[in-house]
């Protein structure tokens, strides 16, 4: 009897050992993603959301926000400079974990990507040369208009072609090259996000914002559909709103605290595609 039990013990020992031998392999096979740096795609130059300062550091409203989020996630961040239109396939291909670039939540975008709750309420606007005679959209008839390729401005211009009769639509990738062409007189008016335009015009000579186009857009962070990271980051955004940190960031970049009731202050639900 004792011989039998001791034999069994040996077998148990053996099984245990082989299992322990295999364990490292099991761990290897499920590579934990959480320790790897957060890959963030962003359209650098999109002021004041993401831009390079004089010393070449990447800064901005959304950069501050992402950095705090990464801190709370206890993860490093790696930023990839990607043109706005490319952010969509990039996030879908998982080249990046998320995209930040004052991306507006839209119905059609929700069909292919996921967003967190918004953190900024925005509109479109029209920017022209400082010495331009154009005072608003009505002056843009028969004029050449420019937009950021694939942006909501692009959509808006296409949607309002009949109303304003633009002569031509020019599509740019990046704020900088577009404004350079505007200054050079390549086209007449530039339609785009009002906070960026105001910020740029305030800090750079030669251009002015002549009209706010009320589109009631809300900015958010963009994820590939079904990425569980979205919910975790959304929770962090909630706390950042509650702690007033988002408001601090707003004040830092826009010089004034956010208005009550805006998405920078209010905790909002995750945007969903309405059913039906």
């Amino acid at each position: 009897m004792s011989k039998l039990t001791s034999r069994r013990t040996v077998l148990h020992l053996l099984t245990g050992l082989s299992v322990s031998l295999l364990l490292p392999a099991c761990q290897n096979s499920t590579i934990p993603e959480d320790s790897s740096p957060l890959q963030v795609g962003t359209n650098v130059g999109n002021v004041p959301w993401q831009l390079e300062n004089e010393s070449g550091e990447l800064v901005g409203f959304e950069i501050d926000l992402v950095n705090i989020i990464a801190q709370r996630l206890d993860r490093e961040v790696e930023y990839q400079d990607i043109t706005f239109i490319n952010l969509f396939p990039a996030v879908l291909s998982h080249r990046i974990d998320l995209a930040v670039s004052s991306i507006t939540i839209t119905k059609s975008r929700l069909e292919t990507v996921d967003f967190t709750q918004p953190y900024y309420d925005s509109d479109q606007s029209l920017m022209v040369q400082s010495d331009s005679e154009i005072t608003g959209l009505t002056d843009m008839q028969g004029k050449v208009v420019a937009v950021e390729s694939g942006s909501t401005a692009d959509e808006w211009v296409q949607g309002h072609q009949g109303q304003y009769n633009f002569k031509e639509v020019r599509r740019y990738e990046g704020l900088q090259p577009a404004i350079e062409d505007l200054r050079a007189g390549v086209y007449d008016g530039y339609v785009g996000d009002i906070p960026a335009f105001l910020y740029y015009a305030e800090n750079n000579p030669g251009v002015k914002v002549v009209e706010r186009i009320p589109t009631e857009e809300q900015y958010s962070m963009m994820f590939a559909k079904g990425d569980p990271l979205r919910d975790r980051i959304n929770d962090i955004i909630t706390t950042l709103k509650q702690e007033g940190i988002l408001a601090e960031i707003h004040e830092k970049w826009f010089g004034s605290p956010p208005e009550e009731g805006t998405s920078t202050v209010e905790v909002l639900p995750i945007p969903q595609l309405e059913e039906n």
Binding site: I85, N86, P89, A90, S93, R95, G150, D154, R171
Partner: peptide, 12 residues
């Protein structure tokens, strides 16, 4: 935009 998107997605 469709064409650009098409090429960007293709490039992606």
């Amino acid at each position: 935009p469709t064409s650009i998107r098409f090429h960007r997605y293709s490039n992606e």
